[in-house]
Amino acid sequence: MRFARRLGVLPSALVLLAAAVAALAPGLFSTADPVRGDLGERLLPPGAGHLFGTDELGRDLFSRVVHGSAASLQAAAIAVGIAVLTGAMIGLVAGTAGGRLDGLIMRGVEVLLAVPSFLLVLVVVAVLGPGTREVAVGVGVSAAAVFARVMRAEVVRVRGSAYVEAAAVSGTGRAATLLTHVLPNASGPLAALATLELGNAVLTVASLGFLGFGALPPAPEWGSLISAGRPYLASAWWLTTVPGLVIVAVVLAVNHLGHVLRTRSERR
């Protein structure tokens, strides 16, 4: 089992690396123009000339997927960044303060958790309007509550541990204990959760793109690419199938790494 897990880490890491490179330097993968197409090459199936085929305007789908990874992955990464930073901060304050402030903060977190998170994202998007950054903020805000809860639980767990008790007897101060024992030990589970949340964020960003609330056309984004292929579902299968497979591959890779991280932090 452990061997099988380790075996899966390398392909997952490679998929992620490829996606990250595509997002940062799409030119390395594809020189074709993702926005302007050749009308003479409309709706070509995947083949030697066009790896993923072409769309109704003759644009190279591979290039559009590669260039789309920037919008999709950036939004997901920013969302997780927002969620981790705000959530961890809130959880840390609640866990260290304890008492009434803790109770008050966690009540607020409970309310956020009671609202279905996709609705929360949509509320933010409704206020801010469509766009990659707007979607990122929405996804990040809606996921922050989960991080707050996990961070608080971790802080409380570590603070109650025998080694923190030993630190107290050793005369280590509260602030030093927080920095050297509590934060490092709480960060393992948080990192695992952040990785798993990244997979979720990619899916949510794609859903919003599909619904038309994501990146504004003609910029490509994975979810909106699939949406754009809908009219050709019966005739040009690759327009919807291929970008979806890319999303599945990336999310699977991220989730796999997240599970490995989680197992590792639980084993300690």
Binding site: S207, G223, V248, V251, L252
Partner: peptide
């Protein structure tokens, strides 16, 4: 884990297809 890595809207489109 596999099912939860598939975008739901895409799954619907694939079934339609």
């Amino acid at each position: 884990g596999l099912s939860l890595s598939v975008p739901t809207f895409w799954l619907g489109l694939m079934l339609l297809q």
